[in-house]
Design a protein around this nucleic acid. Structure first.
Lengths: 339, 339
DNA sequence: CTGAAAGCGCTAACAG
DNA sequence: CTGTTAGCGCTTTCAG
């Protein structure tokens, strides 16, 4: 026999029923210790592996989860992917990658994959629900979906995130504490919720300190290297450029530092920069980037953990789970030059 | 009715057979244009989605591929993942992530997932076959597996890679051309094939130029940031440290540069460094890293393309597909100090 | 403790 | 062009 063995083959070889084999393999105690051993042995000998689709069809579970991000190419998701994968794996689940490229159409496709049984649950790291109202209505009431990093307002899904407002506020307060007054902000793409929140943190810190936000000090970015450089350029073409910049993510911060170096400004001597995220390589940069650390590993683990609970029918918190973000002061921030 | 609709539901609603519905939905031309339209309409109205496991069971295809890497957390794989995902998606396949952490046990698990129908094909980016002889023998003769980046000698699988020896040789020749004589090498974990090849390129360039490799000038690394720093430290504790280092990947190169800065050596003033890979952020580093660019996007696309061909029964080249790697000269290399 | 039998939802012969 | 039927491989009642 040269085809893939199935349960029936083992059953026949052993002269038992396929039900018994199935039970023995699943470790049911409705089977003699002895039969179980014999079955296991035979299965090993034949290199038996249960057919995934047959099992899924029967049990109505795929044992896979979907992790959907805005851009698989973004290094930011790496640690999250890693901890999601590890947590999923430990529970016997595989991870399917979803990549939306911010395209609502594609987002719908992933919701569909959930419906059609490709995956049992989903971790969503995109900032919104597909606009097409259909998508949402088609979801079962308690769909096994966890939103991580981002916020989907009014969705009713459990959330795992950090307090973006407070963390940003803290970052800007660090700059203020150093003595900076002319502090600018390079934001993400507003009006996305996350970008808005970081912007709000910036504004709050400035307001609390009684500092005005000068005209042109709020530049809109795109979370990408080049966007950070471009926004920084705009800032330094102003009549009165800032002495410090709070940038909404590390990648743009690198772009900004790069640009500053090109126009001959020293970081942190001439201008201070603080980022957000604490990418893997941020510490190895020169100068090492002062930034807000998102606990990415914890976020992934927590999100996947909650998803697993939902999958096993447990209730999960309706309130967003907020994990702590911490400011990492490193080499790109210093007191302003006293002239 | 509140459960997921199935084909039968549509069939009954329309008064046709489920076979007709199935055919209409799959766009078969064995169905009147009119019936097809009616079926499509009804399916849309009910938000019908075919059950993935049932279809897989019946067709014996999962429409998923497995991408297996040594470490999902490594940014190096990002571009490849991205292009693999895009190519797979365009052909209707989803991508399952596999992470081996260099553990042969886990590698076997992924081979098993292929066998049990979780995926139809696999892109392997780990440097070896699981040692347990079983694993290999259990594979069907023409298993739909493509090896990318790495080399699995004697496996008979199609390969997509760059010429690591030639590329490394070129990198070292660049250093030699600049006037360096005391050139060291920080390798990956030997005796892995890829590490060995890059080392071989280094040795070949040295030999061709009639240069000796001093005692201790070959340091073994692990492809990680910290390992690069450690290896560099060892190099600079030698009586006669090198004036240039060829590092087997960018991540270790960053670590090395970081260490050099710490011990007060200027890069490239005091010592030149060349890396390998050209990570996304390598250009934004300071100084921008001179490195060998692997065409990661092309590698992913090509590997997935070949896998799709295999999946559709086409023959694929037995000879490794070799894609061009190019040296990117940037800011970490300069002529040696003339003393 | 074990076996027989049904059925998950779909597609593909095979008839008509 | 359409319907009937069988069956993919597994798990799970229901009997014994």
């Amino acid at each position: 026999m040269n085809r893939r063995p199935k349960i029936k083959d083992i059953a026949e070889a052993l002269g038992v029923s396929s039900a018994t084999v199935s039970r023995a393999l699943s470790g049911s105690d409705l089977v003699t210790e002895e039969t179980r051993a014999r079955v296991r042995e035979a299965a090993d000998a034949l290199h038996y592996r249960p057919n995934a689709s047959a099992r899924s069809l029967r049990t109505a579970r795929s044992m896979a989860v979907l992790m959907v991000v805005r851009d698989v190419g973004n290094p930011f998701y790496l640690d999250i992917l890693k901890s999601v994968e590890a947590t999923a794996r430990a529970a016997g689940y595989s991870v399917l990658m979803g990549n939306t490229e911010n395209d609502p159409e594609r987002e719908i496709e992933y919701f569909d994959m959930l419906r059609d049984g490709h995956a049992d649950g989903m971790i969503l790291m995109t900032g919104k629900l597909p606009a097409q109202e259909g998508a949402r209505n088609r979801l079962p009431p308690n769909a096994p979906i966890v939103v991580a990093l981002e916020t989907i307002e009014g969705s009713g899904f459990p959330h795992v995130q950090i307090d973006n407002v407070a963390a940003s506020c803290e970052a800007v307060e660090h700059l203020i504490g150093l003595g900076h007054r002319r502090i600018a902000h390079i934001s993400g793409p507003v009006p996305e919720v996350m970008s808005l929140r970081r912007q709000e943190g910036y504004r709050r810190a400035m307001r609390n300190a009684g500092l005005a936000i000068a005209e042109g000090y709020e530049q809109r970015g795109d979370y990408l290297l080049h966007g950070g450089a471009a926004a920084c350029k705009a800032l330094f073409e102003l009549a009165e450029p800032p002495t410090a910049i709070f940038v909404a993510n590390d990648e743009m911060a690198f772009g900004a530092v790069h640009h500053l170096r090109e126009i001959g400004r020293d970081v942190p001597g001439d201008v201070s920069v603080v980022g957000f995220d604490d990418l893997y390589l941020s510490e190895a940069f020169y100068p090492p980037l002062t930034t807000v650390r998102q606990p990415r590993t914890d976020i992934g683990r927590k999100a996947m953990g909650m998803l697993l609970e939902m999958l096993s029918g447990a209730a999960v918190p309706r309130e967003p789970v907020v994990l702590p973000a911490t400011l990492r002061v490193r080499g790109t921030t210093a007191p302003p030059k006293t002239e």
